[in-house]
Amino acid sequence: MRIAVLLNMVPDLVEELEIDSTGKALDTQWMRYVISESDDHALEQALLLKDRHGASVSVLALDYGDADQVLFAALARGADEAVKLTGIPESGLGKRAAAATFKEALGEVGADLILTGVQAIDDLDGHVAGMLGGLAGMPYVGVTRSVEPSGDGKVLVQKEYPGGVAAEIEVTLPAVIGVLSAPQPPRYVPVARIRDVKKTRTLDEREAAAVTVPAQPTIIRMFMPEPAEHAQMLEGSPEELAEQIVKILDDRGLTS
């Protein structure tokens, strides 16, 4: 099986977010990017399939944010090939354009199974996984927690629904799967190993195809939420805070 994994970089929420002077976008100047969490799981899912059933794993990323770091880390974790799609604006692309760009690149790379995260925290005009499925005319299932081969060009996936219920769905390849979680946490590789990989391996750089996106929403403004209600904040030393919490619970009969 030939697996392609699409890796997207998103703002690191550990850092402060700032809106730029246009009021319509995040200020990317000081922004730290990290791999989108569910893409990290998609890569783990691909590597598990490789370990257990044999597969080649190609990873693809658009060249913005910290694409090199993310791609080298993926090679260090066990991916066979890393493709960087160049000529991307510094702030990245909308999700529909990203999906269309990946679609063109996948035509060259070739894959039976395309895995990527089901959702990224900066999604607005779609989710890359589902848009790619739709644009490529391939079967698509998202919000999965497990992908297993089931013989004759098919995979069995578990798709999560609310309330802890999941559906087992058989999907005919070639297909796109939007991963929520891999069956086990993403594997860790030491930073030294990534450093080694940077010295010994190279990224396959390819010019991204120009794509046109027919229908795009227009951003009016971005802003921080100013909720009507906010928690009453407690203050003091840990002991004083503990006392205040006990009092609140006492008043509601929750300590007895």
């Binding site: 929420l13 977010l17 925290i121 929403p217 227009t218 971005m222 802003f223 921080m224 939420p225």
Partner: peptide, 11 residues
């Protein structure tokens, strides 16, 4: 967006 830390108005 961003885990509830940001809102975006779009049309």
């Amino acid at each position: 967006m961003c885990g509830g830390k940001l809102l975006c108005e779009a049309e």
